[in-house]
Nucleic acid binder design. Structure first.
Length: 739
DNA sequence: CTTACCTGCATATAGACAGCATGTC
DNA sequence: CTATATGCAGGTAAG
């Protein structure tokens, strides 16, 4: 089917043709045949990179031209900005695009003036909870990665959000995009959508299992040269010598860096001077943005053409690795599953070095087929690679057969709703009441009766859990119920409304409220621990070496904690120690302990510190608001801590740190030099500041506080002319020259 | 004396969304 | 409490 045959405006047709898209891929054509452009609901269960985005775009553009408005729901913030950037290319057609995620937000009212709004599922839920008016104007909803309905953590939110949206806009077109799953038909039926089910990919994918010095694909074999004793390394070296790149998936961070280290020593031998030179620049960039151990190790690996990637990396390191791989300078990324579902980073060959993953309840467990398919699907860059290959590794013949059968030739599992537990439902039962989707028990059951869970499983078990939730919420004064009426009436209290809008788990809300009421002497640690004891906070794992250290801390600070569980209740106490350990990390963070030191004290990465601080800041904000509502005195203390967690700094730096371009480190430098306040800083001499923080930063700071720089700021000296950016610029120039 | 390889034992275990109000090194 | 890879300490055989 040709683009120009489609029932869409002429200028849009030309736009696609100019960008080289003349014909639809088969699954896209099938979607059009199923009424994509006529506002019909659709579930497309097709592989990654088979043109899901274009499919959604066509429908959105068509709808917008008919006066509609589109909402594009994604599971990850990174994905949101990726889509946002893509859709902004539609600006020439007068299409306005907005983005809304927790960390990056165009203002709510203004957001509604856009034609396309990209948001995470949680943010969408939050917007619904806040009664955002433009939600009712949405005519097209795209739900990306809808198979995440199956996720224990985040599936329920996605499910309830979709349910709410369908109820709010019954005539709205829903386009759901999914990986290929077992019960796609069932999901489609729930959405009242037609189904496009296809395995078609623009680049062929060969899935195989390595065993006996060869990759065994169904029906053929590919011998791999033995240059190293490690098979995965051999596969990597083979790919590179054929001009491709590799993505290696590992089950733990340690394995991930471990493999990068060993493989890099072999990979380096295959690289030429030019590439090594550029890699060295990149490695320096890594070293300059962090002096942690991981930064050094990562830099050393990158010098040899290999990188590792996991959530412990700080964001600049992550970005360098991703960009370096896209530039085809980094040849191998050894990664945890971060890269399996997230960014668009395909490679010629994907090696799944470890198909098992540790689970605290069941030990090492084989990953689901769906997850395997997601990783394997990363193989093959469209238009760049002749084909993609994914490889599992087997040690014995029995394992080889098993892998072939259970992964390569297996179909993905069915999607199962995870809504049916009290933990998952509590927050949604509350928000349903707060937002008026249900004002009595009957309406509540009706609403929950239209979820995927109810569609798929028995509703009586759901009703029981919902009643438990209502009871919990009533007990904690978030919901009022009148049991004398026949359908028991349900309404929310001020507390309930606040908890719903703060987007915290009602159990977190209850714990914080309870803690605030009980607390006697409150200091920083008291509130930090309170926040760390909520189910919304991810606690640190207790290692055996931590035990005495954390326990000693508890002993010497026993007055700081609102409640210490009995030491002989081993499970409770151990859990408590984990909370305290987390609070200790945050305490170091707000006391300006350098990030490198924190990573060592707690055996975490820089990325972990920021993630924990981020969550703590959000929960501390909730604490502030809850304290205000309760009219207890700790709200200003909590508010102060909220700011300190945001910047990771002591109270005396709060004024300096609010200046753009000044963070915890620079603020401390300025403070020690006598610039203890904004007023002092305004009186500062440029030359003095320049010596302190460097000429560029100094000029930047002064202009940000409204001081005009009198002295001439020397043009940036060519010290850094070899930075990555300039290098990449050059690269692009030569590339376009070549074209 | 160095290197390569083996054995045994202890050890640790993926990821990431949200509020609010604007910008880290 | 589940299972596995890793890395280190200590040992041994080969060079």
């Amino acid at each position: 089917m040709l683009i120009k045959e489609l029932d869409i405006p002429e200028d849009i047709i030309r736009f696609y043709e100019d960008s080289g898209i003349k014909e639809l891929y088969p699954p896209q054509a099938e979607a059009v045949d199923n009424g994509l452009l006529e506002g019909k609901n659709l579930l497309a269960a097709i592989p990654t990179a088979s043109g899901k985005t274009l499919l959604a775009e066509l429908a959105m553009l068509k709808a917008i031209r008919n006066g509609g408005k589109a909402l594009y729901i994604v599971p990850l913030r990174a994905l949101a900005s990726e889509k946002f950037d893509r859709f902004r290319e539609l600006a020439p057609f007068g299409i306005k695009v907005g983005i809304s995620t927790g960390d990056f937000d165009s203002r709510d009212e203004w957001l509604g003036s856009n034609d396309i709004i990209v948001a995470t599922s949680e943010k969408t839920d939050s917007l619904l909870r806040n009664g955002t008016s433009w939600m009712e104007e949405i005519t097209t909803i795209v739900v990306d990665e809808v198979h995440l309905l199956d996720s224990k953590n985040r599936g329920p939110t996605l499910e309830v959000t979709i349910t709410k949206l369908m109820r709010l806009n019954p005539d709205c077109q829903i386009i759901a995009l999914s990986a290929t799953v077992g019960n796609a038909r069932e999901m489609a039926d729930w959405l009242d959508a037609s189904l496009v089910l296809s395995e078609w990919r623009p680049t062929d994918l060969h899935e195989g299992v390595f065993f006996g010095e060869a990759i065994n694909f169904p029906g053929k074999q590919k011998k791999i040269g033995r240059r190293d004793k490690d098979n995965a390394t051999n596969l990597v070296l083979d790919t590179i010598s054929e001009g491709g790149q590799c993505l290696v998936f590992e089950s733990s961070r340690r394995n991930c860096t471990g493999f990068a280290k060993t493989a890099s020593n072999k990979v380096v031998k295959l690289l030429d001077r030019e590439v090594l030179g550029k890699l060295a620049v990149m490695a320096e960039e890594v070293e300059s943005t962090g002096e942690t151990d991981t930064a050094k190790v990562l830099a050393n690996c990158i010098r040899k053409g290999v990188a590792f990637h996991h959530a412990g990396l700080n964001s600049s390191h992550r970005k360098i690795v991703e960009d370096g791989f896209r530039q085809n300078l980094i040849k191998v990324i050894s990664s945890t599953p971060t890269l399996a579902a997230g960014l668009n980073l395909p490679a010629r060959r994907v090696i799944i070095r470890n198909y098992r993953r540790f689970d605290a309840n069941f030990g090492m467990q084989p990953i689901p087929v769906l997850e395997y398919k997601q990783m394997a699907g990363r193989a093959g860059r469209p238009h760049l690679d002749p084909y993609g290959e994914s490889v599992l590794l087997a040690k014995e013949y029995a394992e080889f057969e098993q892998l072939l059968e259970n992964y390569v030739e297996a179909d993905a599992e069915d999607i199962w709703s995870k809504l049916g537990t009290e933990n998952a439902l509590r927050t949604h039962v509350l928000s349903t009441i707060v937002n008026g989707f249900a004002s009595d028990r009957k309406q509540m059951m009706e609403f929950m009766g239209s979820t995927f869970f109810a569609f798929q499983q028995d509703t009586w078990s759901l009703e029981e859990v919902i009643d438990d939730c209502i009871e919990y919420l009533a007990e904690h004064e978030m919901v009022l119920m009148n049991e004398t009426l026949d359908p028991v009436s349900l309404s929310s209290t001020q507390l309930g409304k606040l908890v719903s809008m703060l987007y915290i788990d009602p159990m977190s809300g209850a714990k914080i409220v309870d803690g605030l009421k009980k607390a006697v002497n409150v200091n920083d640690m008291t509130l930090l621990h309170l926040v760390c004891s909520t189910p919304d906070m991810r606690q640190l794992y207790m290692r055996s070496a931590d035990y005495t250290r954390v326990n000693d801390f508890v002993m010497s600070h026993s007055d700081d904690f609102i409640e210490i569980p009995n030491e002989f209740k081993a499970i409770d106490y151990e859990w408590f120690l984990g909370e305290v350990k987390t609070a200790m990390l945050l305490d170091e963070w707000i006391r300006e302990i350098p990030a490198d030191d924190i990573t060592q004290h707690f055996n975490v990465g820089e990325g972990d510190i920021h993630a924990l601080a981020d969550t703590a800041e959000w929960l501390m904000h909730a604490t502030t608001k809850l304290a205000e509502l309760l009219k207890v005195e700790h709200s200003s203390h909590a508010h102060g801590l909220e700011k300190r967690i945001h910047y990771g700094a002591s109270p005396e730096l709060m004024q300096l740190v609010s200046i753009r371009g000044v963070g915890r480190v620079r603020a401390r430098k300025l403070y020690e030099a006598g610039f203890v306040s904004l007023a002092e800083l305004k009186k500062a001499e440029y030359s003095v500041l320049s010596k302190l923080v460097g000429p560029k930063v100094a000029a930047n700071i002064l202009s940000n506080i409204g001081v005009r720089v009198k002295e001439k700021v020397g043009k940036s000296t060519p010290i850094n002319s070899n930075t990555l950016d300039t290098l990449l610029d050059k690269e692009q120039k030569t590339f376009s020259d070549f074209q």
